[in-house]
């Protein structure tokens, strides 16, 4: 059982700790850009900012996290069908969120394109977050594909747990980025 230690250990706990550390590490990257937002632009907001659309995509992303949670519960109970459908739902909502960001960007590119300072922090923060969304979506597609081919089971689904946790994290980041740009 043990491969890299002379003491009995739980590989799930080891993987889990590494992922938590990675998540804490990623918060540092986002914090630098959030710091730049306040440092450069204070709490300024351009009037053209589409707050309604912002709320809408936030709701979409929160729902996707709920579905992701469901997917993990399903596979833990051995329900592969439910797991696959809920993962697919997460992917669809995640993609929908990115479409929403794209719409925001189209408006923003007209109203406050960089080097406008708000545009600088807006595009870099949402862009950084969107990059993480894209990696999360790719990982979710992997999870779906592996599950579809018969991988993962009730006792063996670290891949699902890990990717879903990362997805929740990216969601939580948005819950910080959104107020930072839209609400303060």
């Amino acid at each position: 059982m043990s491969t890299s230690t002379y003491t009995a250990h739980d590989s799930h706990a080891i993987n889990s700790m590494g992922l938590w550390l990675f998540i804490v590490s990623e918060t540092a990257l986002f914090s630098a850009f959030i710091f730049a937002r306040y440092y450069l632009t204070g709490t300024d907001q351009p009037s053209e900012l589409n707050i309604g659309l912002g709320y809408a995509i936030t709701a979409v992303l929160l729902s996707s996290s709920l579905l992701a949670y469901g997917a993990e519960r399903r596979i833990a109970k051995g329900d592969r069908r439910g797991f696959l459908w809920l993962t697919l739902g997460t992917i669809v909502l995640g993609a929908l969120f990115l479409v929403g960001v794209g719409l925001e960007w189209r408006e923003a590119a007209h109203a406050f394109a960089p080097p406008d300072l708000f545009g600088v922090v807006f595009f870099s923060l949402t862009g950084l977050h969107a990059t993480h969304m894209v990696t999360g979506l790719i990982a979710l597609c992997f999870v779906w594909l592996v599950g579809w081919r018969g991988g993962f089971g009730a006792t063996d689904h670290w891949g699902v747990t890990g990717v879903v946790r990362y997805w929740h994290f990216v969601d939580a980041v948005w819950l910080t980025v959104f107020p930072t740009l839209y609400l303060v």
């Binding site: 710091f35 440092y39 080097p115 300072l117 600088v120 595009f123």
Partner: peptide, 18 residues
Amino acid sequence: MAFFDFTEGGDPLLYQHI
């Protein structure tokens, strides 16, 4: 972008801090 571009309102000190 203009994080550190003073002519656009950015701030080189931001670079030094980070």
